[in-house]
């Protein structure tokens, strides 16, 4: 396990590299504008890159000052830190989430909303999340597919992808 300070040091370093890449990028990639103003299209991106670089240095410097004596502060963010979950489970959760999203993203373009949703939600629920009941699995998948299709497509008049197969749903 890495200590919080060490992790912060790495975070700061990565952010610093991103900031430097960003500054270089904004100076080379962004064309100059024609408004004739002293503050052109590059001003803000470059300025923000410099700000980020400074903040990253402050973050890194802070990790040396603190000497790991303080207990790691809980993140003050909107999403709470979950109950202790092992790194293994954490990685599994991330893999499952992004795996599902990416496969669903691709499948929806080919199969359309309805088919992709019903098939993938059922598969994912049964094989990955380990739902024990085939009935629940089917009900959730069908309910979600048909429910969202009806709510969005029919009640709200929002368009859902129909897919390349042209099944119309």
């Amino acid at each position: 396990m890495t200590t919080p300070a060490l992790r912060d040091r790495w975070t700061g370093l990565v952010i610093l590299l991103v900031a430097i890449a960003w500054i270089i990028g904004s100076e080379y990639v962004i064309p100059s504008g024609y408004s004739g103003s002293a503050f052109g299209p590059r001003t803000f991106p470059t300025g923000l890159g410099i700000l980020l670089a400074i903040l990253a240095v402050v973050l890194i410097a802070g990790t040396f000052r603190r000497r790991d004596t303080l207990p790691p502060p809980a993140p003050s963010d909107a999403v709470d830190e979950p109950a202790k979950v092992s790194t293994r489970d954490e990685m599994w959760g991330a893999a499952a989430t992004f795996g599902f999203l990416i496969i669903y993203f691709v499948a929806m373009q080919v199969l359309g909303f309805m088919l992709a949703t019903v098939l993938l939600v059922a598969t994912f629920n049964y094989f990955v999340l380990g739902s024990r009941s085939l009935v629940t699995t089917g009900a959730v998948a069908l309910g979600l597919g048909v429910g969202v299709w009806y709510l969005m497509g029919h009640l709200l008049g929002v368009y859902l992808p129909t897919g390349m197969l042209g099944l119309g749903v």
């Binding site: 904004s26 962004i30 064309p31 803000f44 923000l48 700000l51 903040l55 973050l59 802070g62």
Partner: peptide
């Protein structure tokens, strides 16, 4: 940690500069 908050804010501001420049209309990143 104000530094962390400000890093977040700066990242958000940077992300928003991607796309068409709001004044000159030139593409950025």
């Amino acid at each position: 940690s104000m530094v962390r908050g400000m890093i977040g804010g700066a990242l958000g501001l940077m992300a928003m500069t991607i796309g068409q420049d709001p004044i000159d209309g030139v593409p950025r990143m």
